[in-house]
């Protein structure tokens, strides 16, 4: 099969997504739409265009190049760059993704997100950093988006990577059918499993999907021997209280076995620009990033219950 899938980015020298130095392969497309998502460009399964606000000088070249009238006329760059500006360059509804505007832009202010890549292309790039994996216990992390939503392609990619003796991590939300997840976890060395919230209603509100399949899959997963690092998000007004995390501990203790490690991932807002680039609203605008130091107390809660915990999920701890 010579198929390709859309990759939003292949990020080398990633140090917080599994052990050691890793290369993250971000598959584009995810069934969840978390309000705080740090990689909003990985949500859609199709290609998109970034409009990099600060690089744009509003020269109007893109407007002239566009055959579909999908570009808004220029305004003063200072106006567009203002924090509260509602100005958008691309009218998404009219855009048919011909990318003529991207070609026309001399300032690199317009950029295509999502490159179709074959398994060979992906692995060629991943393998470039093998020497770093060897010295750090690193390898490839298949991430997204949601890898399990990329079915056969993603499974084949993992097979091919395994045959090249790469250490593999699966970074998953766990939102899929157990039968599918089962096939994925069987192919990797470590599962990075997200736990976003215990309350299904809140979960639905903030991510667009209920949490039952996720919790259910986690239960099944802990019934196996697969290595699991559970990634617990600490999001303001959502999952930041001590009480909540005590509940999480209680829940985790009901599982067939303890997960191998817990990474507490404090919320940050570095991704805000990306929302603007995609012409989307950043829903978390009112929240400041959480200082990792503040999360130390939550770490204690998990540690007291006998869990192995990090803040930030470095691949160089333990």
């Amino acid at each position: 099969m010579n198929s390709e899938t859309l990759i939003s980015q292949i990020q080398k020298f990633s140090v917080n997504d599994g052990p050691g130095f890793r290369t993250n392969v971000f598959l584009k497309g995810c069934p969840l739409h978390c309000a705080w998502c740090h990689n909003p460009e990985t949500q859609s399964f199709g290609r998109e265009i970034y409009w990099k606000t600060r690089l744009c000088v509003q020269c109007g070249e893109c407007l002239e190049a566009c055959p579909s009238e999908a570009i808004n006329p220029p305004i003063a760059p200072e106006e567009a760059q203002k924090e509260n500006s509602t100005y958008q360059k691309i009218i998404t509804e009219k855009c048919d993704l011909c990318f003529k505007c991207v070609e026309a832009c001399q300032y690199n202010a317009l950029e295509i997100v999502g490159e179709p890549m074959s398994i060979d292309q992906i692995l060629k790039e991943v393998e470039q950093d093998r020497v770093f994996y060897n010295n750090s216990g690193g390898g490839m992390t298949l991430s997204g988006g949601e890898p399990t939503a990329h079915g056969e392609f993603a499974l084949k990619l993992l097979d091919a990577a395994k045959s090249r003796k790469l250490h593999l991590c699966l970074d998953t939300s766990g939102f899929c059918q157990w039968d599918i997840l089962k096939q994925f976890v069987a192919k990797v060395d470590l599962v990075l499993y997200d736990l976003k919230h215990l309350d299904s209603k809140l979960h639905l509100k903030m991510t667009g999907v209920p949490n039952e399949p996720i919790l259910d899959n986690l239960k099944k997963l802990t019934g196996t021997d697969y290595r699991i690092w559970l990634r617990i998000l600490v999001i303001p007004d959502f999952s930041e209280t001590i009480e909540y995390h005590r509940d999480v501990v209680k829940f985790l203790l009901t599982l067939p076995r303890k997960v191998d490690r817990i990474d507490l991932l404090p919320y940050h807002n570095w991704c805000e620009d990306k929302y603007k680039w995609l012409g989307r609203k950043w829903l978390m605008a009112d929240y400041q990033a959480i200082d990792p130091v503040e999360v130390e107390i939550l770490k204690d809660i998990y540690e007291m219950a006998g869990f192995n915990v990090t803040v930030g999920g470095s691949g160089f701890e333990n």
Binding site: F21, S136, S314, F316
Partner: peptide, 13 residues
Amino acid sequence: EKGYQLWKSYVKS
């Protein structure tokens, strides 16, 4: 400490 471990792996590579 993790910074040191990271740097050390970097130096090995």
